[in-house]
Write a protein that binds this DNA or RNA. Structure first.
Length: 281
DNA sequence: ACGAGATCCTGTCAGC
DNA sequence: TGCTGACAGGATCTCG
């Protein structure tokens, strides 16, 4: 599931290859993938030049100079569960160009391989927006701070006086952007906080530790090019490596690496959550 | 303000 | 072998 480190890895990889290139052709094979309708999307993206690729939360952002618009446009891509935006190479994903799960195909100047949007579960969406439209998009406007930019005090304020469970707040993109199930569970384990702890009951000191551990696990995961557990791949189609360093995610029933206790699996905020009953309180 | 549950979607896997 | 049901989860919605 692409979360902040995975989207960051894809953005960096795509930026190296796509920046300054012009999009020559737009092929929409699965119209559901384009939230605003295929016609407007194609009109805006065709002929546009990519000026840069970035990220905000879990959103992948391609900045465009488009002949269809006087002002810059942004191509926003939310990968949700199984979405991938990548350039197939001979070794990786070349066969996916003709996959029934490839919903958008972009041809760029001076690139043999097309840029593919591939998404088995069809939850991902692409939007080509003006900056005004982006600013007016409720999801965008409501995004919380970036976890690698928010300072300790700002982070602690997210939880202060709240009755919700600490993991539910971590997953809420309006409170803090870019965290999903993997990095919520991993950071809570490292900070010694149960996922179902009421946020208001967690001490300020412990929340400061969560801030440090969250930033640390995100940086480690970015350095490892993200976690590949099912469909996620980097922009060039390679697997990430952080899945080999999970301490709790996906390990329910196994022994805790720190104390040997059996890791418990519960549901919090509708998500499977794994934690150590001895190390996390 | 919060939580629980349903929704969307399909590949994978356990169980019979 | 082949079927069935559970499961995975990000965002959004409704209901309590």
């Amino acid at each position: 599931m692409p979360e902040l480190p995975e989207v960051e890895t894809i953005a960096r990889g795509l930026n190296r290859v796509l920046a300054t290139r012009r999009i020559l052709e737009v092929h929409i094979l699965g119209p559901h993938a384009v939230g605003q309708g295929a016609k407007l999307f194609t009109q805006r993206v065709s002929g546009a030049r990519v000026t840069g690729v970035g990220r905000r939360g879990k959103l992948l952002l391609l900045w465009l100079d488009s002949p269809a618009s006087n002002a810059p446009l942004v191509l926003s891509v939310h990968l949700r569960m199984t979405g991938r935006l990548f350039l197939p190479t001979r070794g990786t994903g070349a066969d996916l160009e003709h996959s029934p799960h490839t919903h958008v195909l972009l041809r760029l100047e001076d690139l043999d391989a097309p840029l593919l949007f591939h998404d088995v579960r069809k939850f991902g969406r692409l939007l080509a927006l003006t900056e005004e439209e982006l600013a007016a998009w409720p999801f965008w406007a409501g995004l919380g701070p970036e976890p690698l930019e928010v300072d300790s005090d700002g982070f602690v304020d997210i939880f202060k006086g709240r009755r919700g469970r600490v993991k539910a707040l971590l997953l809420d993109q309006k409170r803090i952007a870019g965290i999903g199930n993997i990095y919520a569970d991993e950071s809570l384990f490292r900070a010694g906080i149960r996922p179902d702890a009421p946020a208001g009951n967690v001490s300020r000191q412990r929340l400061r530790r969560l801030h440090r551990e969250l930033q640390e696990v995100l940086r480690e995961a970015i350095d490892a090019c993200g976690s590949s557990i099912s469909d996620y791949r980097t922009a060039s189609g390679d697997a990430g490596a952080f899945q080999n360093r999970f301490r709790v995610y996906g390990r329910g029933g196994e022994e805790c690496q720190l104390c040997g206790a059996t890791l418990r699996k519960i549901t919090v905020a509708g998500r499977t959550s794994v934690f150590c009953p001895k190390c996390q309180s």
